[in-house]
Design a protein around this nucleic acid. Sequence first.
RNA 1: GGGCCCGUAGCUCAAUGGCAGAGCAAGUGACUCUUAAUCACUUUGUUGGAGGUUCAAGUCCUCCCGGGCUCACCA
Length: 536
Amino acid sequence: MDWADELAARVSGPQVVNDSKTPSGTVHVGSLRGPVILDVVARALRAAGIPTTLLYGIDDMDPMDAQSLLTPDAVDRYMGAPLASIPDQAGDGHASYARHHAQTFVETFAGLGIRPDRYYWMSEIYPTGNLDPFIRLALDRAHVVRDIYRRVANVRHPDAWHPISVICERCGKVGTTIVTHWDGDRVYYECRPDLVKWAAGCGSAGWVSPFGGRAKLPWNLEWAAQWSLFGVTIEPCGKDLATAGGSRDRSDAIAREVFEREPPINVPYEFLNVGGKKMSTSKGKGAAAHAIADTIPPEQLRFLFVRSRPNQVVEFEPEGTDAIPRLFDEFDRYADATAGRPFRGELAAGFDATLRYSLLDPDADLAAEAGAYRAAFSHLALLVQIPGVDVVARIEAEKGSPLTARERAALDERIISVGRWLEAYAPDRARLAVRRDGLPEEAAALDDQQRAFLARLAQAVTTPGAPVTGEAWQGAIFTAAQADELPSGRAFTAIYLAFLGRSNGPRAGWLLSSLEPAFVIGRLHEAVANVPGGLA
RNA sequence: GGGCCCGUAGCUCAAUGGCAGAGCAAGUGACUCUUAAUCACUUUGUUGGAGGUUCAAGUCCUCCCGGGCUCACCA
């Protein structure tokens, strides 16, 4: 049983699983852990026969608070304005800044097999008036809210402060307004130039009704109001919010004391660390973060997150390591185990659930998916580097039967991953380079028997004309080795040393067939004749 | 300064309080057609440290060290 199943076993009755996000910037890999956990929780509940609704909110009434996300000419006008009312800075046709970025992550989620039953937009919820009862409660109990902030978070608001942000009637900003009076019908607000450091209000003031979309609840109240409005029973949150005295504590207290409802079950989760550090778009790891998502296919990315308990930091360092190949290998091992094939080592109980929750399609046939033929990542990494090899045909030959459409699609996906990995992350030892410039010094390690074998091979391929196919070359190698009674392993080592300067390599026949015969023969002779300098 | 999470083999991680284990990496060997594959075997530990509870502690308690995150004017 895996962690999500354990959670599902603890609850009864219909569940509403929720999360929400501010559409302020692009999504990086680390920030995908939350949505994956959210989705897996919902899948586990459903697998346990519990009626479950998965909701995802877009907090597009949140104020813009980062200048770097705006074009310079938009800063004065839009800092502090709701994201939903800022024009699309990318200028690619979206109705607003919020729509632009929300679309990015809706698409990203869909690509990861995360399809909430419903996305809700706060900019659409407020005008319906559905939040008005909560706005009224918050204003009536403003002293309770102030007390919670002081007690739980040690934040002291002025006595006149009320938990609502009016959208300024004149300048349209929401981050710059403060409400100081509430008469049970309207609120008195001021749009201050200096309320917050990051945005300047226009200075207007007045009495206005806070209902029907004219005002927004501060984040902690809005969160608790979402729980009440939608009947949320489970909501994971990142540990940045889950800390004591942090956002979640405040919202929990507000839910209980202001809206009089138990907060949902929390599933606090840790982050994804890259090289021991949290990923962040603002800390220079952003580009790398994006590239990682482009390199790892969705199912392996889900697997990365599903495999670990939420409270465990996921350490992942793809740069110059075999972390990515190993992720694939582990995935394949889980698949082997689930399919009932032999697999190395042992796996904790629940491995089949882990695999199931890693699949894109929640309704996929687990046995069929697990049983599908998958070429090992490192094997592919090798094949794609040999010129002239038909990788698909080669893999099909290794499988022994034609690939299914599903297997072919997975192979194509994996080949793309391999290419990106070799390009961006792979350690040098994974890259294949024929030493064109001359006999590698490592070839000094060749012994007499190996030199004799190379000589025989050179002779064999010259006499009737060089082999053309990889298979023919492979045959020639074995024949030559046999004639000298040289164990094939040492024969191959000899070839690798002569051409690659290393003791192992890809299938030698195919490697040699990708090179010009004249070069191959020349190099063979060199290796036989020359004992590179420096060694007595 | 407060809080939370974490610390187990070189790396990534397991172990209802009950003989510290896997994968990968490394090493040795096998292989006449998958040779960076496959197979067999092997090495690696003061479980961050010190106390305590217990017949028994990686696991529970206290303190310390280290790493990470977070809160104290935002969402």
